[in-house]
Design a protein around this nucleic acid. Structure first.
Lengths: 237, 237
DNA sequence: CGCCAGCTTGAATCTACTCAAATCTTGTGG
DNA sequence: CCACAAGATTTGAGTAGATTCAAGCTGGCG
């Protein structure tokens, strides 16, 4: 269950928040405490359903979750990924409810996120996290609207690499990608068959290798340059 | 410049916020005062550019604006529309900066949005507005990812109808659509030529009429039923 | 060993794109 | 009030990228 890259003691979720905004003692203690009390969710289980009232903000500790929309005829679209260190349901409304269903893609560990009132640094980390979330949504819209299948895959993988780097779950080239080609298709608005063909092409081009769940990008920076990918992180100032 | 539907004195921007959350006296006064001091922006002018520091939250008073992303090779994608009563740059960060360029699509009137601290009702209206914004982004992702050209157009027009109804700028069937087919293409991830053909088809099917800038949907509720459109408004509780 | 989910392959099809030209609008100046 | 230019819409023909459907393959696991 331990991820390859993160051998140190800092849990990825804590590391992500700390990277977004250096946390003070109370914040670190609160997050560490929260992370100690996780709930495990099985793959394909719903974490939250559309329209459901939100009582706590949740924090992803481990695993992959996703916001999804399913159409009456069975088409499905993954709206966004939720990865370790990401918040679920963080908003300012009095009685908020979920705007989308959230499901676990792998086994997921979640906990209740400490209240931002505990520490100004924590509040700021949450705010930056929320801003980044929005940047990822906008990037996804541009991806689906204007990129080809080939570009979409590269662009998404570069975003994921970047996101995992924030939490220490990726080094400069590689991270664990536990998604089936069908799920990739559901994020990228394509079919599994076409994802398959494009992944083969990318391998033939030498852009990536995929052994088991381990994804390695040969030259992330060169690839980002080539397809004009700009990391959303730059927007969070 | 006065829009067809809104003959009463309530400005659309005020009406939208008041619809989201009934405003108290101070809030209404503050919004009315703010709306009195508008800045006019010409079509195609930038309201905000990517990465720029945000000093005030802005409120759209009149006209259409959009968040756009332009690729190095000239492809462009409209990420979201900003319509009367919508907020620009409302967030919780200490020193926020814009995650996308915002341009005026028509002549736009904007003002500085009153601070939410003025009134709890206003703060809640802003919070709901922000939540709705996110719901629109998610809806757009699902649209681009999984709907056909025909469905995308219908789905977008239904969303716009719904949004204009919030501010009193649309009745049950019609609103003013000042977009060229090229701009519609830029939102929907299609080409102008294809938008043209699909609009003709929709007219032939009797789903809509388009005289000048006036868009009339023949049977919005039936259409929404047919394509499985769910108004994002339901998510805001 | 055999099953099953996921991956791979091929052929036919279709949706949307490209390019190019014609027509319609709208606004402007003479 | 007409002529003209510029922008926007419309039309047609050919093409490309992605889908569909169907079959075969692979690897992990009971």
């Amino acid at each position: 269950m331990t991820r390859a890259v993160n051998r140190q003691h800092t849990p990825p979720a804590l590391q992500r928040l700390d990277t977004l905004m250096p946390l003070d003692g109370p914040a670190r203690a609160a997050v560490t405490g929260a992370i100690a009390r996780v709930r495990l969710v099985e793959p394909d289980q719903e974490l939250l359903s559309e329209g459901q009232a939100i009582t706590h903000t949740l924090l992803i500790v481990d695993g992959w979750a996703a916001r999804v929309r399913v159409f009456p005829d069975g088409r499905r679209q993954i709206l966004s990924f939720l990865l370790p260190g990401d918040l679920i349901g963080h908003c300012r409304q009095d009685s908020p409810c979920s705007v989308s269903t959230v499901i676990a893609l792998t086994e997921v560990a979640i906990c209740v996120a400490p209240r931002p009132a505990i520490s100004p640094a924590l509040a700021e980390a949450y705010a930056i996290s929320t801003a980044l979330d929005e940047a990822y949504l906008l990037a996804h819209i541009a991806r689906l609207g204007r990129l080809t299948a080939h570009e979409r895959i590269c662009d998404l993988l570069l975003e994921l690499l970047d996101r995992f780097q924030l939490s220490g779950l990726a080094d400069a080239w590689a991270f664990e990608l536990p998604l089936t080609q069908e799920k990739l298709a559901d994020v990228l608005g394509l079919t599994a068959v076409h994802i398959n063909r494009m992944l083969q092409l990318l391998r033939k081009e030498g852009e990536l290798t995929l052994k088991g769940r381990q994804l390695v990008l040969t030259d992330p920076r060169g690839l980002a340059e080539k397809i004009g990918h700009i990391t959303a992180r730059v927007y969070a100032c």
